[in-house]
Structures are given as C-alpha cells and as structure tokens.
Computed example of a mutant assay.
Amino acid sequence: MTKLLFAVTAADHWTLNDGTEHPTGFWAEELVESHRTFVDAGWDVVVATPGGRAPVVDEGSLAVDANGGDEVKVADQKKYLASIESILQNPASLEDQRASDFDAIFVPGGHGPMEDLAVSTSFGALVTDFLSTGKIVSAVCHAPAALLPATTSDGGWVFDGYQLTGFTDEEETQAGLAAKAPWLLESRLKELGARFESSDPWSPHVVVDRTLYTGQNPASTKPLADRVVQALS
C-alpha cells in the first residue's frame, strides 16, 4: 500500500509586516480535495503537523465568496472536515517522521505554512531526504513556502533550478494581502533560483519537474493530487 505523509501547518496566524497577526491556518479546499483523493486511492495517509498540534482551518476559506459563491461546495468541505475531525485533532508530530517510511509527501496550503513550515529547519531536512531518495514532494498554493528551508549540506537550496509553481504575487495582490505581506511567495522562490511558472490568476495549473509536483492555487489542488496518484499507481 502506498504511504503518504500529509504535512499540515499548525499555525493559526500569519505575522504581517507591521507585526500584526492575520488569522489563518490551512485552506479548506486544499486539505479536503487532496486528502480525499489520496484516501479514495486506497493510500495510507498519515496526517502530521509541527509538534503534533491540531491544525485549524482558515475560516476565510469556508466563506461562500471564497468558493465562487458555491454553497454546496462549502457544505461539502465542512462535511468532510467533520468526518476527519478525530484525525485532525490527533495528528502525528512531523519531527518524528522519516522519509524512509513513506512513498511521498504532500503539503496543503493556506497562509499557515508561510508562518511555520517555511522557517522550520527540521522540516526542510525532511523534505531534502524525500527529494534525495527520489520520492515525490508535492505542495499547493502557499505550501511551496514549505520548500524554502530544504537545503544541501553546503547551504544551497535543493530546488535551485527546478520548475515549479505556487500562489503568485498577482494573486496575493488580488486577494488584498500583498502590501501587508512580510514577503511574497513567488518572489522568494524566484530569488532562490526556482524557474517559476504560472497561469492566469485563480485558474488550475500544475507543474511537474522530476519528483517535484506543485500547484498554483486552490483550484489546482484536485488536478495536482490526481497527478500524484497517477505517478504512484
């Protein structure tokens, strides 16, 4: 059975450039659509967070307006989150996980990973282990921020030169937080050497380079998860 490490942020806020804390967490669609896809594929999915702390949903991600006005979609997300509540309330600790125990790692987004995973040296080391052993590393929307601390023994970034995608600076601007952001994901990834690719704002877009699988935004979640399942079928 394929075993997947489902790495979720435990942050409940994102510290803005003026020091204020913007409430956040994981983005509902990104967790729901990916987790459901992997479970439906029959995989063993291990949910883990920094310190084994229960993750929280970004309440904004459950707003009808944030889901294209689709009330049915929001109701489905809430129903699915309720169905896995016991799993989310009792996650494993990311610090205890080893790449050798899994076939792939997936990180759903939301602004939460910008706060904790993006600066976690232990998580960076874990991601590096996945990559160096030829296993799939996958992240969607803001979650490619979790790739930032993955470095080589000489301090270089392990994804330097990789093609990838993530939440764009344009999308962050349209979402209204770019001016308040301490840093922007697309810009930071490019600064480190990523060959960043994007499509139109809010449209599904998936990029695969070797064993790195990334999605641009919430709408990219299901297509991305499907690509990961296809790769390991």
Rank of each mutant, 00 (worst) to 15 (best):
L131D: 15
L117V: 06
Q163A: 11
S34K: 08
L88I: 07
G124H: 08
A48G: 11
P182K: 14
T165F: 11
R98P: 00
T128D: 14
A150N: 08
E171W: 09
V228S: 06
V57T: 14
G109K: 14
K222L: 15
V56K: 04
L184R: 13
D200T: 06
T49R: 03
S233N: 14
G42W: 05
E171I: 04
D154K: 15
D12W: 01
K135Q: 13
K222S: 14
L16C: 11
K3A: 04
V64T: 15
L94M: 06
T2A: 06
Q89F: 01
A181P: 02
G112N: 03
A48N: 04
T37I: 07
L192A: 02
L5P: 07
A41R: 06
G109L: 13
S220D: 13
I105Q: 05
P201T: 12
Q89C: 09
L177F: 13
P201M: 12
A175E: 10
F38M: 06
K79H: 13
S86C: 03
F159A: 03
E170P: 00
R36G: 10
D76P: 00
K79E: 13
V137L: 05
T221R: 07
S93W: 04
L192T: 01
Q77D: 07
E95G: 14
L164A: 08
S34T: 13
A143G: 04
D44C: 02
S34P: 06
T121M: 07
S132H: 12
L185V: 02
